[in-house]
Design a protein around this nucleic acid. Structure first.
Lengths: 228, 228
DNA sequence: ACCTGAACACCGTTCAAGT
DNA sequence: ACCTGAACACCGTTCAAGT
């Protein structure tokens, strides 16, 4: 029975803001998220958001990190029996799936992990697993980087979707080999998936060859003599 | 000596607009290009731009296409003696150099060629050369796509630059393998170049292996029997 | 602590008006 | 044909004020 006003439950929380912002990005794209519209969606006025985030970029970072958090990393556990190549493959597939489920967020993610905790956890896990598998630290760093290049590139620049679904856009005298390019748009997902699989396999094949070279050199302790 | 006003020389042209916009993007980033600021830089009022471009996106597309136009495609000429693997390698290096010279433009380019003529010329050249080298059309499409994934991904998400140059950002209990991560920022270019080279080599090694498989299968006309 | 309205300095784009 | 000022419907962010 006191007359002092108890603090009412806050209208907002970081979680609620991130959840609504994510839905907005997924539905209408990155540009659709203005602080004013997001606030309206949450039933508050624009400036209220600044009680929970320093600025709009921090909100989008949190949205992006929620996507990173969905990437499966269990294949990099020490207890997991998968070899590094299989682990890398399965991780890449899981990573790409997380990104293609939220394509509008990819431009934010592609900027790098920055200070985003889930993004850093991903980088940490793959680096640690590659070192444990026998890769030198410098190579392990390169692998983390180049896999990210390929995966985010594939999620961002949906190759086929980047073409226009309009036959007249590709004059044969200008582009002699693009006669079927307008068909790319409709077969988009299949082509992007095929290109991703082809590229991933090539990447892993090539890395396996480099790994073999490395272990052979280590076994020999000296550069191999010529002949058998 | 006539009193009728001759049409004075127009203040603007598409070329002048694109040139100034490119300089603005390179110097201050994509967000620094507002129609009003661009117009001020050109000595005109904002709406004047709409006499030459339908909207701001068209201006940025033209800026991006100017970068694509700098990618060397001579290695794909029919008269060029380079084999497909060497051509693909040299093209990738030239492509990446064009992008890293204008990193702020990459997000626009990464969206795909769309209707941008220079972007389409690139896609046309690589596809045509791969088909001529003996790749099946579907595989040639995949190669164009996956190379673009890797190259734009590497130019966009400068891996090392994505980390923060701040030791305290990487708590060892959270990220046991990132103890040196704050050093990444300063060694950025070297790491990104190393990762690009490692990845490109792996990609080409892997593709060469798939190419071998393909030609072997073709020679045999039937799936190869076991044994030698 | 958390939310508000008012305000500031911006946006992209349209359009009638000028030459 | 090409440029202008005015206008419309927006932005992100700050800040004093309220509870």
């Amino acid at each position: 029975m006191c007359r002092m006003a108890r603090p009412r439950k806050p209208l907002l929380s970081r979680e609620r803001i991130v959840g609504t912002a994510s839905a907005l990005v997924d539905a209408d794209g990155l540009d659709a998220v203005s602080t004013r519209r997001l606030a309206a969606e949450l039933g508050v006025s624009g400036p209220s958001l600044y009680n929970h985030f320093r600025n709009k970029d921090e909100i989008l970072d949190a949205v992006a990190d929620a996507v990173s958090a969905k990437v499966d990393l269990s294949m990099f556990d020490e207890s997991d029996p998968r070899d590094w190549r299989t682990a890398l493959h399965d991780w890449a597939v899981s990573y790409r799936a997380a990104l293609t489920a939220h394509p509008n967020v990819v431009p934010v993610l592609a900027r790098g992990p920055g200070r985003r905790p889930a993004g850093l956890k991903v980088a940490d896990a793959v680096f640690g697993a590659m070192v444990r598998a026998g890769w030198p630290a410098a190579q392990a760093t390169h692998i983390g980087a180049l896999m990210r290049y390929f995966i985010t590139g594939s999620a961002l620049g949906s190759f086929a979707g980047g073409f226009v679904d309009d036959e007249t856009a590709y004059d044969p005298s200008d582009y002699p080999h693009l006669g079927q390019a307008h068909l790319l748009a409709e077969r988009q997902e299949k082509i992007d998936e095929g290109a991703f699989e082809t590229g991933l396999r090539a990447l892993l094949d090539g890395l396996a060859a480099q790994y073999e070279e490395g272990t052979r050199a280590k076994r020999a302790k000296t550069p191999p003599a010529d002949g058998s």
